[in-house]
Structure formats: C-alpha cells, structure tokens
Design a protein around this nucleic acid. Structure first.
Lengths: 229, 229
DNA sequence: CGAGTTATTGACACACATCAAGAGAGGTGG
DNA sequence: CCACCTCTCTTGATGTGTGTCAATAACTCG
C-alpha cells in the first residue's frame, strides 16, 4: 500500500537538476513550485512499485535507470519501457499502476505525490494539457514498440533499439548499456541467446564494437540501414 | 491539405447517436454543444487521411469500420488499430497525422474540426482532462498490442484478437469480421496464410465456428485459455 | 580465489514465412 | 440465369529465423 522506497539520498547528492536531461513533461513541475520532489534511492533490482498497487506517486529518474514491465501468466515478461536520467515514469491515470517498475542499477529518483498534480490539472487547463502531452509522448513510444515487435527481424529490432538508446544518452555513439541481455530480450520480444548472437553478427558486420560486455560503440552509418530494414 | 471526404449522408441517415456505442471520450462532445459534427461517408478502401497530412479534423465512426496503419520502408504494413462504430479516431497532438486511416467498408463518420477542441482545452481544464483521458486509453491499447506482438504465438494472438473484437461488438459471441485476412495479419504481425491456418486450427479445436468466411461464432470457454497462453 | 551471475556459442527443433496451387465468394455482362 | 472474372481465402510443400537445450566462457563481487 504505502510507499516502499528505502534509502534517502546522502545530503551530498546536490542539486539534481544539473544532471537532468528532460525527455518530456519537464514544464509540468516547473509550473508547480510546491512540487519539489522528495529524493529517494533504489538498489539494483529493487522494485519501485508493482502492478496493481495504488499509484500514489510519480517518479523522475535522477541517476541510474528503471524498467517497466508486465508479466504474462505463463511467466514471460514484456518490458514496455526503460526510464533513463531525466525521464518521468509511474504517472498513471486511475488508481493503480498498470506495470511493475524496477531499478536496473542503483538509482536515484525524485518522488512527487500524484494527488496535488491531479488536483492542479482539474483547476488549470495548462497543467492538464501537459498531462495530455505526456500521455501522447508515451503513446508514441508504445506504438513505436508495437511497430518494432510486429514487423522486424532480430537484427532490425536490436539495431533500432541501440540507436534509440544512443540517442537518449546524447547521441555520442558510445555508451554502456544499463540493462542486461535478458532485459533487452524481454523488451524486444526475443530470447537472450538471440540477442547475444545478434550482437555478435552486428559486430562481425562492423556495425558496432563491444569493449566490455555492456559497453559498445556504434558504427551508425552501418547500423542505420539494418534498423530500417 | 484540405479535407477529402466525398459523399454526404442521405437525409434518411437519421440520428446517429442511436447507433453509437461510445468507447472513450464520449463526454467530450457532449460538453461542447457547438461541436455537432458534420456527417461524411467513405467508400470501401478509401483513405480518410494519410500519414503526414495536416491533422485538421477528428472523426467518430457512426457505421462501418476504419483501420489506422503505418508503412515500413520495405513495404510492410503495421495496422495499429481498428475503429468501430462509436470510436473516435484521428485526434493527434501536433500538426500532422502519424498514421494513415482507411475505411474497411463503406463507412459513415462524423467530422469535427480540431481547432475549437484544442482551443477549448486551453481554456477548460475539464476538456483538457478528457483529452488526457483519451490519450491514456489509446496508450493502454497500444501497450496491449505490444504485449500481443512481443510474447504470443499465432494462436494466442488470433484468439486474443477475436475476443477483443467480440467485446467491442457487444460480446454476443457471434459477429461478422469487418476486416480481411490481410488486415488481421497486418495487425497481428503474421502472414495471411498463418492467419488462415490458425482459423482452421481453432475451428478444429472447437474454439470457433465459421459460417461465411467473415462470420464467426466464438466458443469463448475454449478460446479464452488459448488467448491467455 | 571461488561462487554466482551474466554472456557467448553450438546443435537441433519448431513455428511461422514463403512459394505455389486451387477453391469459394461476389460482381458484371451477355 | 449462367458464364466469366476477380478478389479473397484455404491448403499443401518446403525453407528459414528464432527458440530451446546444453555447455562453456567471461564478469562481478564477496
């Protein structure tokens, strides 16, 4: 029922805004100065909230990463999104969360109670429009995922995924994946073996290089045609 | 650019509200009495709007059915949704449509200009909240589709699809599919041959009966377990 | 250094795609 | 009303991409 966050920030955590890269909805909290957000931290693999729990809070990632997923009754898992630094997540409409959210690594977040936001939305058309805007952005993401899952090969899925992650990390072409092969597999609708083999293929084709197992450098000129196909 | 609808209703078309079964957002138009909606009709396979076109209007299906889809550059198509009587579609945020919409059969719709609705949203928190609510409902649909595409067998996909269509037609268990096998295939991420074979399998298993090629009766007790797996 | 987790690679199986042929259903014109 | 055409659907034979099962290698963290 209540909130389950565990560890508070150390005071040394400093102003989180300097590390934020806002994806969408950033204006919302600027407009509500009383919504400052309470810092919390989650350990690797720790649950932020579970499917069906009461949705009392909204979260913004400060550092680290979070995954949202749903389980099917045969035990298989579909990850519906990854939330990186700056991303807002957990903002449902209705009383309960439709997903489970878990920290991929040790993660710091800001927590906002949902009620005052919703109350603000019923009073302020501007706030309500921002909620609309956020939902629309999520809708776009979900439809892109459906496109990926419905009509693309393993290579196409992984290539598109890596390009997207690169973009969200700033588009440098080099980054460390915050998620495991299993997470990637459960996002792309593949198995870990296929993900692993596809990484190897892409590397053979010169579309990327793996330094450590999680750290990669994209050759975007070669990767993009694979993602489009 | 401009609107492309072709045929007006005959005056005999009568009050459309008697035939409507509203899925979501019905309240929106009730609250804006000046938004009465202009009746239009589209022929089978006619385009309502195309991807990238300016999104000047919102549509509500009165009779018939519409599909929304996106094309991939290799010519494959992902249908992202079917819109049945009572459904609202084409309400984008931003200037352009992200999808192409086409009539499945001869279809009557009501058309609403988008501008006054958006203007109302900037003034009225209630209207804006309804837009939020509509976007959220669409988000749920898109995520359900992603779940379907990512983690389910052909049987599971078709069974879940048929149960959903039945529900939207009123849950009687008997109905005529408004879409072709190709449409179903492009929605479920399968080929028409697999869809056809899967229909045959489900019929052999006693999970449904086909009378005419498009008309079916579900045996929901047997179909549901297939859909869940 | 050892133990557990995560990633890679190989051999094989299977579900779905592809290619191909034919059967129905619906429409049109004689 | 029937012959004919076209479009949709079904069914069969075969191919292939991804899943499954299994073994090993590479990390990670006490």
């Amino acid at each position: 029922m209540g909130i389950k966050p565990t560890r508070r920030f150390s005071p040394a955590a400093a102003d989180p805004r300097t590390t934020l890269r806002s994806i969408h909805g950033s204006g919302l909290f600027a407009d509500c100065p009383d919504l400052i957000g309470t810092p919390y931290a989650y350990a690797r693999e720790e649950e932020v909230y579970g499917e069906g729990e009461e949705a009392g809070f909204v979260y913004r990632v400060v550092e680290g990463a979070v995954r949202s997923h749903k389980m099917l009754n045969d035990g298989r898992r579909q990850i519906t999104g990854f939330h990186l630094a700056g991303d807002l997540f957990g903002f449902e409409q209705g009383e309960t969360h439709w997903h489970t959210a878990e920290a991929l690594s040790d993660t710091r977040v800001l927590i906002f109670p949902r009620r005052p936001i919703e109350r603000a939305a019923t009073r302020s058309a501007e706030v309500a429009c921002q909620l609309w805007s956020m939902a629309t952005a999520s809708l776009r993401d979900a439809q892109d995922l459906a496109l990926l899952l419905g009509r693309r090969s393993a290579q196409g899925r992984l290539a598109a995924f890596l390009i997207e992650v690169d973009r969200r990390f700033g588009g440098t072409g080099t980054f460390a994946l915050p998620m495991t092969r299993r997470d990637i597999a459960d996002y792309l609708g593949l198995t870990i073996e296929t993900v692993s083999r596809t990484f190897s293929q892409l590397e053979e084709d010169g579309a990327l290089r793996r330094t450590a197992s999680r750290r990669i450098t994209l050759h975007r000129g070669r990767l993009r045609p694979v993602a489009e196909a």
